[in-house]
C-alpha cells in the first residue's frame, strides 16, 4: 500500500508542478490546489497507514485504542486543509483581479514589475 501511495504522491506532485509551470493563471491556481492535496496526502501517508480504527475513543473506554490511527496528523491536515481553502479562495480572487486589471492572465506577459529594462510605465494605469 505504502509503495502505491508514494507513487500516487509522486504523480500528484508532478502534476501540480506541471500545472504551476503553465502559462495561464487559472492553471497555476489549479496547480496550487493540487499541491495542497499532494502535501496533505504526504503528511497522511508519511505518518503511517497502520491503524485499523478511527481516532475516536469508543463508548465506555477511557483511552484511545493503541491500534487506532494516529490522530495528530489528522488534526494537522485538517488545519492545512482549512488554510489551503483560504489560500485557494484568495488566489482565485487574485486571478480574477489580474484579468480585470490587466485584461489577460498570461504569465509570460506579467513581467513589468521586475524586468530591468522595462521603461513602459504601467503605474499610470491606476485602476480598472
Amino acid at each position: 500500500m505504502e509503495i502505491i501511495m508514494s507513487l500516487v504522491i509522486g504523480v500528484c506532485y508532478a502534476c501540480a508542478v506541471f500545472l504551476l509551470l503553465q502559462k495561464r493563471l487559472l492553471q497555476i491556481v489549479l496547480g496550487i490546489a493540487l499541491l495542497g492535496h499532494a502535501t496533505n496526502l504526504l503528511i497522511f501517508v508519511a505518518a503511517g497507514l497502520h491503524g485499523d480504527s478511527v481516532p475516536i475513543i469508543p463508548q465506555g473506554s477511557e483511552i484511545l485504542a493503541l491500534t487506532a490511527v494516529d490522530p495528530l496528523p489528522q488534526a494537522l491536515i485538517l488545519t492545512a486543509i482549512v488554510i489551503g481553502l483560504a489560500l485557494f479562495g484568495f488566489s482565485l480572487a487574485l486571478a480574477y483581479r489580474c484579468v480585470a486589471v490587466l485584461g489577460h492572465d498570461d504569465i509570460d506577459q506579467i513581467t513589468h514589475t521586475d524586468s530591468l529594462d522595462d521603461p513602459v510605465s504601467i503605474s499610470n494605469n491606476k485602476d480598472s
Binding site: 489560500l87 503605474s123 491606476k126
Partner: peptide
Amino acid sequence: EGRAEQTEGAVKYVVLNLLSSA
C-alpha cells in the same frame, strides 16, 4: 490599492510563497 503593478507583483509573490509553504 488594486493597481495593475500590484497585481502583477502579487501574482509572483503569492505563487512562490505558496510553493514554499507546501
